[in-house]
Write a protein that binds this DNA or RNA. Structure first.
Lengths: 252, 252
DNA sequence: TTGATATAATGATATAACAATTAGATCATT
DNA sequence: AATGATCTAATTGTTATATCATTATATCAA
């Protein structure tokens, strides 16, 4: 990296902010990452060093680093031996970002609910095909935990969510997990809807069946059961608008 | 927003950076957005105003704004009547962010390709169910455009991608559109793969069939054809690794 | 009415300084 | 020698002040 790489006199027609010095630094680090010149854990340098290398002020470097940090490209640590390093991937950042865009774009709850059914049923099908022994252990453990809190609506709901996530993770597709997480926050934003005892028992039974199907590799039955399960949850969570999705039935 | 909302003396056990003043400002704006107190287009204020409101320096405000901007929550404009506003959703920027995270996380091409097939086949199915007359017009128009550039690999590829996007948009589910877009350029960053004449003709025929099925509401056939179509594209684009996805067949 | 110009608001960048945090070195004590 | 306290240097976090570049609006002249 060298200051000579910075274009201090960009074409006049270009927007200002896109060509800011800070953004040029961001672009350079990004490109170095995709070119394989930088990888997770690599030290980029301290703010002072970078300011000297690029021949810009610390403020400008900070702007760039803040952007890179928010993108999840770098991690910043304070103190001695601190500084900026290439981050390890964290897909949760992306899920958060996508969730924000849903909010800003005015995507409705129904659209998201429909997508949840799509993603989660697919994940269930894949889980039945690809689950490892470790996945099964995890699912079994979560089932046990849930069985202990059947009378505690809040904790049971939480345990149930963990179970659902564990199923998706058992699919073996991290891209799918990332998309799933981006949709997850929507259903229970208020943490309000709580499962009463009888409802919890029913959900627990379904979870047990799902576990068996996934264990036995019964992909299509597992998928169908998950679709029914989620539709049932939707009915409980959104009783006021129990009409079918405006888009008609989703798959199957 | 008021400076009294900033916690200047956080618990000593908490990590430093998470409690930085700048990050507290970020959190406040974010929460205001999700609480509905702020919406797209709302003016947050200028750096100077915000610095006064929060009783912090301009630099600190800038740090926060830069983060919010990278998150896609705000848009910043320079000049008179400039300042920071809550952004409109922009999903296209995210493929970049997602591609970076996939890269850093070591997510494989296969996981991404599988996910693309899931999203796109589902979108096709929904399009056959929910497409409007306007959607059909758009699709028809794009078909016509593609037919004119069968001999121009680059333009045909571009037209084809537009057609695929239009199908997804015809699904009527913006969350699905968002997820589609987020995966879209992850693998083909430069629109590199080009279709030769015979391949283009075949793709064009498939697109025509897809159009007819979507028009006639034949959801399941349309889905299956799209899966086959994408698998075919994958074979062309990734001939070296034509083995089946490590996770086994996806759905259907 | 139109077009050029001045003005004021705003972000972008620079410089200097101090505060808070952190890892590692140093040193005293047992 | 081991241990714990303390010091030190490096680094990010924050503040203050100033200047430059950009941009919408107002003003004014033709």
């Amino acid at each position: 990296m060298d200051k000579s790489l910075l274009n201090r006199t960009p074409p006049s027609w270009a927007p200002v902010r896109a060509n800011s010095v800070a953004n040029q630094i961001v672009a350079q680090v990004r490109e170095a990452l995709f070119a394989g010149k930088l990888g997770p854990g690599d030290l980029i340098g301290s703010e002072k060093e970078l300011a000297r290398q690029f021949d810009v002020s610390r403020i400008t470097v900070r702007d760039a680093l803040r952007t890179l940090e928010t993108m999840g490209i770098v991690e910043i640590r304070v103190g001695a031996t601190g500084g900026t390093r290439i981050a390890n991937g964290n897909l949760d950042h992306f899920s958060d970002a996508l969730a924000i865009q849903f909010k800003l774009s005015g995507v409705t709850e129904y659209e998201i609910l429909d997508m949840q059914i799509v993603i989660e049923s697919t994940g269930t099908e894949l889980a039945a095909q690809n689950r490892t022994e470790k996945d099964l252990e995890r699912l079994s453990q979560l089932l046990d935990e849930a069985s202990l809190v059947l009378d505690n609506p809040e904790e049971f709901t939480q345990a149930g969510q963990k179970f659902h996530l564990a199923i998706i993770e058992a699919s073996g597709n991290r891209a799918l997990v990332a998309q799933f997480k981006s949709l997850r926050h929507v259903i229970w934003p208020r943490g309000a809807k709580r499962a009463k005892r009888e409802i919890a028992e029913h959900a627990y039974e379904v979870h047990q069946k799902l576990f068996t199907m996934i264990k036995e590799g019964e992909a299509e039955p597992a998928r169908k059961l998950m679709v029914a399960h989620l539709s049932s949850i939707r009915t409980i969570a959104f009783p006021e608008n129990n009409k079918q999705s405006s888009n008609g039935p989703i798959c199957c």
